[in-house]
Amino acid sequence: MITAGMDLGSKFIKIVIMNDGDVIARAKMLSGFEQEVTASEALSEALSKAGLQSGDIERLTATGVGRSIAPFAHDRLTEVGAAARGAIARLPETRTVIDVGAEEGRAILITPDGHVKDFAINEKCAAGSGTFTEAMARALELDIVEFGRLSLQSDKAVPMNAQCAVFAESEVVSLLHARTPKQDISRAVHDAIASRIVSMARRVSVEREVMIIGGMAYNVGFIASMKRALEMELIVPDDPDYVPAEGAAWAAHDKLVGMEKTELKER
């Protein structure tokens, strides 16, 4: 059966198309100002990659901050539910999911039988999200990937005083003026955001295996800071930002399976 998951994030829209639980196509596009239009475009792209028509999708589940405006969606699922379902599908042993995207961070504790036990969210403040790191990279005139990598070269922790992204930008610039090496500034930034994410995660308690997903999971500097702060190994999956969209596609799949079972019973 063909199902799809659509994750309308604040920065990117991700689409996953599945056939009986196997990912057959994916697409990612910048959300832009007209999310609904972008979502349709991204879906068309994924469909053409899969060699399918829109009518071939038996069920589509939408998630993400923009899920309410998702076109063609049969169901909508919270970001927490989608992240948990996707993480379990990737690795059934996952107990804690840390999801850090462009504008939000969340930590989810999952029971051994795969249900969401607790979750905590950092939202509506750039200090706890990927936007923070991006703003700092911009202030240093560095590419975000390069900025993350630089952090690995640092062996010195420089404290950062500012919490707010706006104030931190000025602080980063003055650190640069004071001739602080860029790699140390990069580490300071990644340590700062990691410490905020870890504080949030500790509110749900952190149990192994710990999987880190979302766009920030691509950032090697952030992952290193997270490992230091948590003092444990982390599972960083491939294509970490697609996990919630996969979770949504799985939710659509689960729903179809459930409906078939009901139908069988009724017969």
């Binding site: 100002f33 504008e103 509506k124 750039a126 936007t131 703003a135 992204a165």
Partner: peptide, 18 residues
């Protein structure tokens, strides 16, 4: 609607675009 200056700024950019 956003309190956070960073998010408010992108909101404003969106309004200008509109």
């Amino acid at each position: 609607s956003s309190t956070c200056v960073v998010f408010a700024k992108s909101e404003a950019a969106g309004l200008l675009r509109q």
